[in-house]
């Protein structure tokens, strides 16, 4: 039986974000991310002066790009991409040159001093593979993140991207980012 083609992505409805950082904490707990490093974070954008004031929160993490520059520049192939789009680091092959960190337009990667290798968001591939959603998605109290398979016409993100307007960040780098921010 032929495997069904999958393409995982995240839709982010950032207007629902209340900056509680539960996603950041959940990620750290799920993946054992050391103090000082982050696989996901929340950008804050302030505009205007009191009382005419506006503040936006925008969760971000690895965009699991369509043509990831981090994978392209890796000299050993340690940075790689699964067929379902998830970009991962093979820790046994990584030599710690940090070229991928420089090549990432989103600064989504970090260097782990203790092990000397680069690490990043895995889209909780271990959870996804057993049918669960990533920890950041599961924990979000205001349901900002929607995880799903773009190849599945019945999925919620398929519907959202078909009916809602959205944007991706820095498309001009040509990476083809797969975090879709609803407008």
């Amino acid at each position: 039986m032929a495997m069904k083609k999958r393409r995982y992505a995240l839709v982010i409805d950032s207007r629902k974000c209340i900056n509680c950082k539960a996603c950041v904490v959940a990620c750290k707990a799920e993946n054992g991310v050391a103090v000082g490093n982050f696989r996901d974070w929340i950008n804050e954008d302030r505009q205007g002066e009191y009382p005419k004031l506006r503040m936006d929160f925008e969760p971000e993490q690895c965009h699991h790009c369509e043509s990831p520059s981090c994978v392209r520049v890796c000299p050993t192939g340690a940075s790689w991409q699964r067929k379902d789009g998830i970009v991962l680091v093979n820790y046994d092959e990584c030599i710690g040159c940090r070229y991928c960190m420089i090549a990432c337009p989103y600064d989504a990667r970090y260097f782990v001093e203790e092990t000397g290798v680069v690490d990043k968001c895995t889209l909780c591939s271990h959870r996804v593979d057993r049918g669960d959603v990533p920890a950041c998605v599961e924990t979000c109290p205001s349901k900002v993140r929607i995880f799903g398979d773009l190849e599945d016409p019945a999925s919620r993100i398929h519907e959202l991207l078909a009916t809602r307007r959205y944007r991706v960040k820095e498309p001009q780098t040509g990476n083809g980012p797969q975090l879709y921010y609803l407008l």
Binding site: T76, C94, I95, G96, C97, R98, F111, V112, V117
Partner: peptide
């Protein structure tokens, strides 16, 4: 010397 994992340089 600058590599995070010096001993793995052979992987290049």
């Amino acid at each position: 010397l600058d590599l995070g994992n010096m001993l793995r340089f052979y992987k290049l």
